[in-house]
C-alpha cells in the first residue's frame, strides 16, 4: 500500500516534469513549426545554472529563480542569433541545425563546468518527509515539485486561453500568415514563445536537479520522452501534452517499480530478472506504437482537418 501510493506520486511528479518540457516543445513546434532538438540542452542548462547560482548565493530558492531567468535569457538569445533563421525551412534542416547546437552545448558545458557532474543540495526545510496519509510519508521536495508544476500548468492554461498574448499565440498556431497580415509583430511573438518554452524547460531541469545529478547529456534521454509525449498527445496541443505526460510518467514509473514482481509471478526468477529491465524501458515505446496504430495523429490533435 505504502509503496503503491509512493510510486503513484512519483509517477505523477515525473509526468508533471515531463509536461513542463513537452509543453515548451509543442508550443514551439505548433507556432513556429520548428523542431527543436536543443530543447533538452535548455533543460540541462537550467540544471547547471541552478546548481551554480545556488552555490554562489547559498540559497536554493534564489538560485532557482536566477536560473529560471538565465534560461529565459539564453532561450531568447538562441532564438535571435540562430533559430530565427530556420523558420520556414525544411524540418530536416531544423533537426540538423539543432543537433549541432546540442553538440555545442554539451561541449560548452564540459569546458565550463568540467566533465564531472554537479550536485544541487536541498535546503533542510525541503528534505523533511511530510505525512500525506496516516502512516505514509512523502518527501517534501517531491510534493513541492508536484505543486509548482501543477501551478505552472494552470498558469499556462490561463495564460494561453484567457489573455491577449495567449490569444495571439493560439492564433499564431492556427494561421501564421494571417496574424502577420493583421499587423501583429510576429517576430516578437516568436521570440517570446521561444523564451517561454526555454524557461519551462529550464524549470523542469532545475527542479529535477536535486533528485538526479546534474550532468552532461541529462537533457537528451528526457527529450526523447518528451517527443514520445508529443507524438502520443498530438503535436501542438498543450492539453494533449499534459494528459500524455501524466500518462507516460505514470506508466514509466509504475512499470519500473512493479513489472519485475509481476513478471516473476509468470516467468521463472532468472528469466524475469533478465526481461524486466528491458521490458520496462520498452513500455512507453510500446504504448506509443499502439497509439500510432489506433490514432496516427495522436490522441488530442491540436487542429482537426
Amino acid at each position: 500500500m505504502l509503496l503503491v501510493v509512493e510510486q503513484f506520486l512519483n509517477g505523477l511528479q515525473f509526468g508533471l516534469l515531463l509536461f513542463l518540457l513537452a509543453a515548451g516543445l509543442t508550443l514551439v513546434f505548433g507556432i513556429m513549426d520548428l523542431v527543436n532538438l536543443a530543447h533538452g540542452s535548455l533543460y540541462m542548462m537550467g540544471a547547471y545554472f541552478a546548481a551554480t547560482f545556488a552555490a554562489w548565493t547559498g540559497s536554493f530558492l534564489l538560485g532557482a529563480l536566477m536560473a529560471l531567468g538565465a534560461t529565459l535569457v539564453l532561450g531568447i538569445v538562441l532564438e535571435v542569433t540562430a533559430l530565427r533563421h530556420l523558420y520556414g525551412r525544411d524540418h530536416l534542416d531544423h533537426v540538423l541545425a539543432t543537433f549541432g547546437l546540442i553538440l555545442f552545448f554539451n561541449e560548452a558545458v564540459r569546458l565550463i563546468w568540467g566533465p564531472a557532474g554537479l550536485a544541487l543540495p536541498l535546503p533542510a526545510w525541503l528534505t523533511v518527509p511530510v505525512p500525506i496519509l496516516p502512516g505514509i510519508h512523502y518527501p517534501a521536495y517531491r510534493l513541492a515539485i508536484i505543486a509548482v508544476a501543477l501551478l505552472v500548468a494552470l498558469l499556462l492554461y490561463l495564460g494561453v486561453m484567457r489573455t491577449r498574448i495567449g490569444m495571439l499565440i493560439r492564433a499564431g498556431a492556427s494561421n501564421r500568415e494571417m496574424i502577420g497580415a493583421l499587423g501583429i509583430n510576429i517576430k516578437l511573438l516568436y521570440t517570446l514563445v521561444f523564451g517561454l518554452g526555454a524557461a519551462l524547460a529550464g524549470l523542469a531541469g532545475l527542479m529535477q536537479a536535486p533528485i538526479l545529478t546534474v550532468q552532461i547529456g541529462m537533457g537528451e534521454n528526457i527529450l526523447i520522452l518528451a517527443f514520445v509525449i508529443i507524438v502520443i498527445g498530438g503535436i501542438g496541443s498543450i492539453r494533449g501534452a499534459f494528459l500524455a505526460a501524466i500518462f507516460v510518467g505514470m506508466i514509466d514509473t509504475l512499470g519500473r517499480a512493479f513489472l519485475p514482481n509481476l513478471l516473476r509471478q509468470v516467468l521463472s526468477g532468472a528469466a524475469a530478472s533478465t526481461a524486466a529491465p528491458a521490458l520496462s524501458s520498452m513500455l512507453i515505446y510500446l504504448l506509443m506504437a499502439i497509439v500510432l496504430v489506433v490514432r496516427p495523429e495522436g490522441l488530442f490533435p491540436a487542429t482537426r482537418r
Binding site: 513546434f29 523542431v35 524540418h91 530536416l92 533537426v95 534521454n221 526523447i224 517527443f227 514520445v228 508529443i230 507524438v231 503535436i235 528491458a278 524501458s281 520498452m282 515505446y285 506509443m288 500510432l292 496504430v293 496516427p296
Partner: peptide
C-alpha cells in the same frame, strides 16, 4: 503510418528503444 516531423520523432524513439533493450 505518420509523416513529416512525426516520422522523424518516431524513428528516433524506436531506435532509442532498441538502445535501451
Amino acid at each position: 503510418r505518420t509523416r513529416g516531423v512525426y516520422f522523424i520523432m518516431i524513428t528516433l524513439a524506436f531506435a532509442q528503444m532498441a538502445y535501451y533493450v
